[in-house]
Simulated scan of single mutants.
Amino acid sequence: MEINLNPWQNKYFHGHHNVINQLDGIKGANSINNSLLFYGDYGLGKCTLAFRFANFLLSNHLGSFQEFKIVEDDIYNQISKLSTPNIHYIPDLDEKQNIIEIKIDTIRDLKNKLQTKTFNKTQRVVIIDSADSLNKSSFNALLKLLEEPPSQTLIIIISHNLRNLPDTILSRCIKFHFKNLEHSEIAQILKKSSLDIDISRIKEIYSNHITPGKIIHLFMHDFDNILNDFNELKNTNNKDIHSRALYISRKYSPKENHQSFIIFFEIFMLWIKHNAINLLDNMPINIDLLRLIRVWDNYNNKYIDLNTYNLNKDEFLLSICYELQKVKNEIK
């Protein structure tokens, strides 16, 4: 048995029994709201469970959702090809898996599609993954849809961070919190993924709280080589820093390497954080700790500006390389 990495094709699911029981409860009481909100860290299976619940509803399964097993019938085959007219899926990823903004035209187009009757007069499900990528205008359009929901339509909104959603959206949804999985559950998921993943290096950087989806994402985007690049940069002496910085900039600035760029930046920020924590353990607070905090804040803001205004990645990466060298020299 292998887990398919696409949520709409995955027949297996592990963990989150509390969420499944909650969904069972509202289904059994015939009290399914028009809008549900699945929230929790990236990579916990929120979208996978959304498609699984959609399959459950479209199948008119008589048993409980807890007992539900996906079989390769016509409904699954349509869902696995994203071809069923009764599921509308709005992702925030392009064909190269880069995060994109969900614009108002996408929500307007969805609203027009939902004005038609459901196929075979059955339940219809909308999955928005994730609402974190909606802009102000598209949030307003979604709000109107939630205020006047079409009949027989369930809207499942996915969020990795509730702070990204306005209160007007939050107040109109039943919320389901996806908590961190147990280590045994993560191990089961990774085992069934059929990927040969050594998570020891990932845990060194991201700690033990990392999600299975994040682990798979890092593996699929060549985490080991990115970490090697970072470690080589970290170990570069002052004499060779310019050539190493140019190498990093040229490698990670192209658009096609955007996911690798994000991972490289995450490693840098986590390195700053880990050094700050180590200094914090050695109280009292000193100037090195304050400097690390300023660096973290500065690059967090720079990263936000980079994405907001589509700024130059080359300059950003060069700046990171030289900053790392300065920090490394100052906190020896």
Rank of each mutant, 00 (worst) to 15 (best):
S137L: 09
S137W: 05
S137F: 08
S137R: 02
S137G: 01
S138Q: 07
S138Y: 05
S138C: 11
F139I: 07
F139N: 12
N140K: 08
A141W: 06
A141R: 04
L142K: 08
L142N: 07
L142D: 03
L142R: 08
L143R: 03
L143P: 05
L143N: 04
L143F: 06
K144L: 12
K144A: 06
K144T: 12
K144C: 13
L145I: 04
L145F: 11
L145Y: 01
L145C: 09
L146I: 08
L146T: 00
L146S: 06
E147S: 05
E147D: 12
E147A: 09
E148F: 12
E148G: 02
E148V: 07
P149M: 06
P149C: 06
P150S: 10
P150R: 13
P150M: 13
P150E: 13
S151V: 11
S151R: 14
S151C: 02
S151Q: 15
T153D: 07
T153K: 10
T153R: 11
L154R: 10
L154K: 09
L154M: 11
L154T: 12
L154D: 05
I155Y: 07
I155M: 14
I155D: 00
I156S: 00
I156V: 05
I156Q: 01
I156L: 04
I156Y: 03
I157D: 04
I157G: 03
I158K: 02
I158Q: 03
I158S: 01
I158Y: 01
S159Q: 12
S159I: 11
S159H: 08
S159L: 09
H160L: 11
H160N: 15
H160W: 14
H160S: 15
N161F: 12
N161K: 14
N161I: 06
N161D: 15
N161E: 13
L162Y: 01
L162N: 14
L162C: 04
L162T: 14
R163V: 00
R163P: 01
R163A: 01
R163E: 11
R163G: 06
R163I: 00
N164C: 05
L165Q: 03
L165I: 15
L165R: 05
L165K: 04
L165A: 07
P166F: 08
P166I: 11
D167S: 14
D167R: 11
D167K: 12
D167M: 08
T168V: 08
T168E: 06
T168N: 03
L170N: 10
R172M: 11
R172K: 09
R172N: 12
C173V: 08
C173G: 05
C173N: 05
C173L: 02
C173S: 11
C173A: 10
C173P: 02
C173K: 05
I174R: 13
I174G: 02
I174C: 10
I174E: 09
I174P: 00
I174Y: 08
I174F: 13
K175D: 07
K175C: 05
F176H: 13
F176S: 02
H177A: 05
H177W: 06
H177K: 15
H177T: 00
F178I: 10
F178H: 07
K179Q: 14
K179A: 15
K179C: 03
N180D: 07
N180V: 01
N180P: 02
L181N: 03
L181T: 00
L181Y: 05
L181G: 02
E182G: 10
E182Y: 13
H183L: 14
H183R: 15
S184L: 14
S184P: 09
S184D: 15
